[in-house]
């Protein structure tokens, strides 16, 4: 029983990060039908922003060597600000890597490459400015909370509990926004049929920006939280999550918000179930699931049936 609870806790806390990550992908996909390969870089930026905002100093490498913000914000304040800054960067990425293609009516496939270019630029910009060393959000950021909690024999790190809680709140807010507000409904309309949405007077350009902004915000928050949990391993920090997020995205169903959450939790749990002896195969779990899912049910768990022509 303890074991089961332990697996559940481990799986959920990892799955929550995957879910947050995939949500960002899915928001952009729902309005544009393409994948934003710069998403991982924005996640990384979120972690760096959080680190700088709490007053973390840059080490001895990079152009900003020795730099430190004059103020050190508490973590709970730094995190949302980092989210907003990441959202701003995501809007910038939309502007340089997506909008020009849309204006020219170019093949949406090209956005895979332009967004990859934007991601490469962001990652290397971080390295240029702050070097490649790891940066850490101090373990004391959570105040006097103990480093780990136990629930009936199962142990979990406090950071992971926080991650799970924040993700749950964010997903709840996002769902409420999509279902309960005018702009949320507009987003839905654009994702279902951009042409009709346009005829109904919905500004699709604006909706695309909202989707990018939200996706950047979520990525930034996820980055900051993961940075607190495992420290920022350098500019390439987000890449692993970026690839796995793809698996989650397709498993849940491209463009489906509840699907992204479900996909994240399933893959998190599945990875937690891999026995230690076979942990080398853990990274293949997400993709194995994804591959099978594509063959059995290409639209994913909660996606809409696919149109005949793409």
């Amino acid at each position: 029983m303890d074991d089961l609870l332990q697996i559940l806790l481990n799986g959920l806390s990892v799955g929550a990060v995957y879910a947050l990550f995939a949500l960002g992908y899915t928001l952009v996909f729902s309005v544009l039908g393409v994948i934003n390969f710069a998403h991982g870089a924005i996640f990384t930026l979120g972690a760096y922003f959080t680190y700088l905002l709490i007053g973390g100093g840059v080490g001895s490498n990079g152009l900003l060597a020795g730099f430190q913000l004059p103020v050190g914000l508490p973590f709970w304040l730094a995190l949302p600000i980092a989210g907003l800054l990441s959202a701003a960067v995501a809007l910038g990425v939309e502007r340089v890597a997506f909008r020009p293609l849309r204006k020219r009516n170019a093949d949406p496939l090209l956005a895979l490459i332009t967004s990859l270019g934007a991601g490469v630029i962001l990652v290397n910009l971080i390295q240029l400015l702050m070097g490649a060393e790891s940066h850490s959000i101090p373990t004391g950021s959570l105040g006097s909370l103990p480093p780990a909690l136990s629930f009936g024999g199962a142990h979990i790190r406090t950071v992971q509990v926080l991650l799970l809680a924040v993700s749950t709140v964010l997903v709840g807010l996002l769902t409420a926004w999509i279902d309960g507000t005018r702009s949320g409904k507009g987003l839905q309309a654009v994702s279902e049929d951009p042409v009709t949405a346009q005829l109904l007077g919905i500004n699709s350009g604006q909706m695309i920006q909202i989707a990018f902004g939200l996706s950047g915000f979520l990525a930034g928050i996820a980055g900051g939280l993961v940075g607190l949990s495992v420290s920022i391993a350098g500019p390439y920090f987000g890449i692993g999550y970026g690839i796995k997020g793809l698996g989650v995205l397709v498993l849940g169903g491209l463009g489906s918000v509840p699907g992204a959450v479900l996909g994240g939790l399933i893959i998190g749990l599945a990875e937690a179930l891999v026995p230690s002896d076979l942990s080398g195969y853990k990274d293949a779990v997400a993709f194995g699931f994804l591959f099978l899912m594509l063959l059995v049910r290409p639209q994913g768990l909660l996606g809409k049936p696919l149109p005949n022509k793409v």
């Binding site: 332990q6 697996i7 481990n10 806390s13 990892v14 199962a154 142990h155 979990i156 790190r157 992971q160 993961v226 949990s229 495992v230 420290s231 391993a233 890449i239 692993g240 990875e271 937690a272 230690s276 942990s279 080398g280 853990k282 990274d283």
Partner: peptide, 20 residues
């Protein structure tokens, strides 16, 4: 008593630590 194999780039070891 146990050998735990990790993968490069991996950063969350909670599960393996609990097993261990």
């Amino acid at each position: 008593v146990t050998v735990q194999r990790t993968n490069s780039g991996e950063m969350d070891f909670q599960k393996q630590i609990n097993d261990n």
